[in-house]
Amino acid sequence: MIFEQIFNMINVGLVVLDKDLNVRHWNRWMELHSNIKAEDIIGSPIFSCFPNLDNPKFLRNCKSVFKFGNFSFFSQKLHRYLFPFKPDSTFGSEFNHMQQSCTMGPLRDESNVVSHIYLSVQDVTEIAAYERKLVERNMQDGLTGIYNRRFLDTKLQEEFSRHKRYNRPFSLIMCDIDLFKNVNDTYGHQCGDVVIKHIAALMGSVIRDTDFLARYGGEEFCCLLPEADFEIACSLAERLRQAIEQTEVTFDGQTLNITVSFGVAYMYDEVEHAEALLQMADDALYAAKKSGRNRVVAAP
């Protein structure tokens, strides 16, 4: 009597299946989330209401639990859910379905033979939403909202390997706000932040959807350009330079004109590692600074 109450009151979905995978028990949590009453599903194969479970992996794991009395785990990370239910909480708005972590385990009869299996279904939508936010934040620069250095380093390696494998074009732009120290010294660091945010947003609106713009350091940015050859990369850098030259940043009633210097590097066979490409762009940027700033210099 008490066990039956626990079965129905617990905030977890519980299902019991027999050897033929017919539903034997279906708790209240499952009723409420599936809109299927226990009396309507008990006795029917689980697949009659949930055809998505009729797949090799689910069947393989059922077999394993019946044979070995072990447990099977269906993590949210890969499976998202076993039972397609609507999300329950406000966190669910970003998911089409309730995110579930499910476990399958053995139930034995008097002679210790596994005669049934249970499935427990836990709603992990909230955790999945938090995790998604954390992953996003881990890739984002706090001030500008564009990608951060950590993301850039990983992505650079990925794109570099992709280039090596498929021999597709790949370019990279490094750029740095000209005389940024003067902005900070004259107008203060808050103004410096406004300038960095403004430039990041402007560049973000000019680059292609397939490019990755990241804040590399203080006032330095890096843009990865997959599938961009040397001409495309140089013309994009020039467009960025012009867009910034023509823009005005206002802070505290004052108007500032900002310029940026650019270094462009293009990937070719002799470039042996990703850091070398970055160094080439950095050297070109240094040359752009040396030769008077507000210009695009391409690596030789």
Binding site: K57, R60, N70, S72, F73, S75
Partner: peptide
């Protein structure tokens, strides 16, 4: 992970069966 879960489940499961015990498993 899935193969590990099944392999470990099978091997440990059969050992404890002979020792007349039952075990539960953490996720691999």
């Amino acid at each position: 992970l899935e193969v590990s879960n099944i392999l470990i489940g099978a091997c440990v499961g059969k050992v404890v069966e002979l020792l007349d015990d039952e075990v539960s498993f953490s996720p691999p």
